[in-house]
């Protein structure tokens, strides 16, 4: 928690400084967000398609075909969108961050930063923290866009309906609370992933063999904490 508080504190100062950390931030977004866009888009398209196919084959039997919009919003926007994006980012970028920082620790690069008066949290952690969080939020938006668009494309094969009718029904059940919950989850998940990944990167002490161990622990902790945070936020949504 102390590490997380220090990261938050330095994050506040990060936006006041025009330092080299901005370049790190840009590259972090590039590696975490842009490079993950393909897999996120594929995953969301497939998920939307599955929901539409299953929903349109089951729900009309009960005369509740219109519930497909509610299910799409609940699954893609509110629940699976943020958590799946977080899992992918934790698996890709979380491990990369832990490995990178662990390697820097093992190579005594962190000692060099400290020796030259550069705060490693300010220069190494905060850009990654902000980059991962921003990437997760943007990726979540793309996940929703591709997921809902993908479901529309699949709907044309299962039960063709007009673009206006589809999005009118979709936007009819999408409310501000859903969007707000999705964004809050993305921010929280991004903060968790970046904090846990950088923390376990710095947990490497000297040996290179510690790096994969910390990476594995980083992934394990990330998944566990993400699920806990998701549960807390979901419960808070219904309160």
């Amino acid at each position: 928690m102390g590490f997380f508080a220090a990261v938050l504190k330095e994050t506040v100062f990060f936006f006041r400084r025009k330092n080299a950390g901005f370049r790190v931030l840009v590259f972090q977004i590039l590696f975490t967000g842009v490079e993950a866009l393909t897999i996120i888009a594929t995953l969301s398209l497939g998920l939307g398609a599955i929901i539409v196919v299953q929903g349109l084959s089951i729900l009309p039997q009960f005369g509740q075909g219109a519930l497909i919009y509610t299910i799409l919003i609940a699954v893609i926007t509110r629940e699976l969108g943020p958590i799946l994006t977080a899992f992918i980012v934790a698996a890709r970028s979380g491990t990369a961050i832990t490995t990178e920082l662990g390697t820097m620790v093992a190579n005594h690069e962190i000692d060099a930063f400290i020796a030259t008066g550069i705060d490693p949290i300010s220069y190494l952690v905060v850009p990654r923290f902000v980059g991962v969080t921003v990437s997760l939020v943007v990726l979540n938006v793309y996940f929703n866009v591709f997921g809902l668009l993908g479901s529309f494309v699949v709907t044309q094969f299962v039960r063709p309906i007009g673009f206006g009718e589809y999005f009118s029904g979709l936007l009819g059940v999408l409310n501000m609370v859903d969007i707000f919950a999705s964004i809050v989850k993305s921010i929280a998940f991004g903060a968790v992933i970046a904090t846990v990944a950088t923390y376990f990167g710095f947990k490497v002490e000297s040996a290179q063999t510690e790096i994969p161990q910390m990476t594995i622990r980083s992934v394990g902790y990330n998944v566990t904490i993400l699920m806990l945070v998701n549960a807390v936020l979901t419960i808070a949504y219904y309160l």
Binding site: L30, G33, N175
Partner: peptide, 23 residues
């Protein structure tokens, strides 16, 4: 990265406006 973030934010704003107008 600029395009990635800007397009994402514009999509988000578009969704907000559309939902707001619809609801």
């Amino acid at each position: 990265v600029g395009v990635f973030v800007i397009v994402g934010m514009l999509s988000f704003i578009a969704i907000l406006v559309t939902v707001g107008a619809n609801q």
